Amino acid sequence: MADADNRFIARLKLMTPLGIAELLALERLLQDRREFRAGQDIVKAGDRPDQLHIMLSGWACRYKLLGGGGRQIVALLLPGDPCDLDGVLVGRQDTSVATLTSVIVAVVSRDALLSVGRAHPRLADLLLWLTTLDNALMSERIASMGRRSARERVAHLFCELFVRLSSVGLQTSNAFALPFTQEVIGDTLGLTSVHVNRVLQALRKDGLIDLREHMLTVKDWPGLKAVAGFDPNYLHLSGMRAAPTSQEG
């Protein structure tokens, strides 16, 4: 299985052990791959998608456009993330998905997705679990934008990305690629680019991070976590709850 595929498989294995038949079924699902350039929409709000897009490489985001032309990014999508699971399952896409870098996605038809879920119930459970994780990420972002200061929001986002990238093997030291602009950070956290720039300078001055040429180095992980009040429990890295065992009465 190609390395790019392993990012998605790594996410699922993190949640529960997978058998050979399940892994082979997933491999078949990931055969159709497509490339998108940076700045392209993969799906748009209002679409009625019959295909699921799964990130294999690169970065993307889910976003909403507001009446005044502003953009609110509601999720940052990393390798291993489904882009539009809600839209495929519900039947209408509520947010647009755009690429932040060039990306490769696996394209899975809705029929194939449902067929695999029927044949392998544990994989169906995992799809539901991925939706639950999306909700947990959204809840934490709402908490940030509602109650955290700008400094705390930025620090929390960096902590979250650090852990999410680590979980799929894309961060193994104290540095990781951050391949987007301060405007993207602002659109994610409800801040202006100017405000983001001030916060980044302050975090750098305090010796917590260094950011240059789209590479973020965490120089003081305990300190950054303390500023953010970061607790990774909402990422549920311990995996999916085991199914109950039947007991004879």
Score class of each variant (00 low, 15 high):
1 M>Y: 01
10 A>E: 12
13 K>F: 02
14 L>N: 14
16 T>I: 13
19 G>Y: 05
20 I>Y: 02
23 L>M: 13
28 R>T: 13
29 L>F: 09
30 L>H: 04
36 F>G: 03
38 A>L: 07
41 D>I: 00
43 V>P: 01
44 K>G: 00
47 D>H: 05
51 Q>F: 05
53 H>V: 07
58 G>K: 00
59 W>S: 04
63 Y>N: 08
65 L>C: 07
65 L>W: 03
75 A>E: 15
76 L>N: 04
82 P>C: 05
87 G>M: 04
89 L>T: 11
95 T>K: 00
99 T>I: 10
103 V>P: 02
108 V>G: 01
110 R>V: 07
110 R>I: 08
116 V>H: 01
116 V>I: 12
117 G>P: 07
122 R>F: 00
123 L>V: 07
124 A>S: 11
128 L>S: 03
134 D>L: 02
137 L>G: 03
138 M>K: 02
138 M>Y: 05
139 S>D: 14
139 S>E: 15
142 I>L: 12
142 I>G: 00
142 I>N: 04
143 A>D: 14
144 S>K: 00
145 M>T: 13
152 E>L: 05
153 R>Q: 14
155 A>E: 12
155 A>R: 03
158 F>C: 10
161 L>H: 01
163 V>D: 15
167 S>C: 07
168 V>F: 08
169 G>Q: 09
172 T>V: 10
174 N>H: 12
178 L>T: 11
192 T>N: 02
197 N>S: 14
199 V>C: 05
199 V>I: 15
200 L>I: 14
207 G>P: 05
208 L>F: 05
215 M>T: 14
216 L>F: 08
216 L>Y: 06
219 K>L: 15
226 A>Q: 13
228 A>Q: 12
229 G>Q: 10
230 F>C: 12
231 D>L: 06
234 Y>D: 14
235 L>S: 10
235 L>D: 14
238 S>E: 15
240 M>K: 13
241 R>I: 14
